[in-house]
């Protein structure tokens, strides 16, 4: 028996919106410690890693480890049927063929059940090594989303250069070029608005806008985003999910031919 309940479906709705652009299918691995998803996008350029800890749920029970292959499009459609304030419960038997989503309104007068067929998937797990990053930047997630959107108008890729002075995003294309510099905030009274840079060595890396613009769909999950970068390794773009977990996006850089 697997059962996981969240008092408000809003978190799960936002999580689905944050992955649906990148993933068509994904395996949800459920264990005593929580729910984990690790999946590459179709082009195998980026990797999504989602972790929801069992102690972050209002109720969590997982008698046996389960790997449930889910169609993300269908799951997104089902979550859209829930109101943000509805309680959501995920339920499956051991060795399940399907999973049930149960939405209950706050006043308990409406109860909706949606059953979704599970899919068989080959489980290919990538081992992500522990990495000490040269630059770790924390910045407002809305600002990051805005910069990605704005610079995407100029080119297909954004170059991120990080130094002690700050972080610079730039894009160049046929019509011109653009760059946005953010300095580290002097006083971080408002934690949510702070730009914090932890730099060991300066880095300069280039990434495809397409993927960055998919990652920023996670913006509603968290006021701050953490960008971890080292030369010649994938960018990690991380959003905390309340007190329950996090979503990390890994993106392979573009390199000189």
């Amino acid at each position: 028996m697997f059962e996981a309940r969240l008092a408000q479906s809003a978190i799960l709705k936002k999580v689905l919106e944050a992955v649906k652009d990148l993933l068509t299918e994904a395996t949800f691995e459920c264990s005593d410690s929580g729910i984990q998803v690790q999946a590459m996008d179709n082009a195998h350029v980026s990797l999504v890693s989602l972790n929801l800890r069992s102690d972050g749920f209002d109720k969590y029970r997982c008698d046996r480890n389960l790997s449930m292959g889910m169609n993300i499009g269908t799951m997104t459609k089902i979550l859209r049927c829930a109101s943000s304030e509805d309680t959501v419960t995920l339920r499956a038997v051991d060795s399940p063929d399907n999973i049930i989503f149960i939405f209950e309104s706050q006043n308990k007068e409406k109860l909706a059940e949606y059953e979704m067929k599970l899919i068989n998937m080959d489980l290919e797990h990538l081992g992500i090594p522990e990495t000490m990053y040269s630059c770790v930047v924390k910045m407002p997630s809305q600002e990051f989303a805005r910069i990605c959107r704005d610079l995407s108008q100029f080119g297909e890729a954004i170059t991120i250069a990080c130094s002690k002075e700050g972080i610079k995003f730039s894009a160049a294309g046929d019509y011109g070029n653009a760059n946005v510099k953010l300095a580290q905030t002097a006083d971080s009274d408002k934690e949510e608005e702070a730009v914090l840079i932890d730099m060991q060595e300066p880095v300069k890396l280039t990434f495809a806008c397409r993927y960055l613009n998919s990652f920023v769909k996670a913006t509603p999950l968290c006021a701050q985003v953490k960008l971890s970068m080292s030369s010649d390794v994938p960018l990690v773009c991380e959003y905390q999910i309340g007190e329950i977990g996090h979503i990390r996006y890994y993106l392979a850089p573009k390199i000189d031919d």
């Binding site: 590459m40 082009a43 195998h44 350029v45 980026s46 990797l47 290919e124 797990h125 990538l126 081992g127 992500i128 090594p129 890729a157 280039t206 495809a208 390794v233 994938p234 890994y250 993106l251 392979a252 850089p253 573009k254 390199i255 000189d256 031919d257």
Partner: peptide, 14 residues
């Protein structure tokens, strides 16, 4: 010009 790397080339596949 730059070419796009794949993510699996950085991480071990299990």
């Amino acid at each position: 010009s730059k070419s796009q790397m794949g993510i699996a080339s950085y991480f071990k596949v299990h």
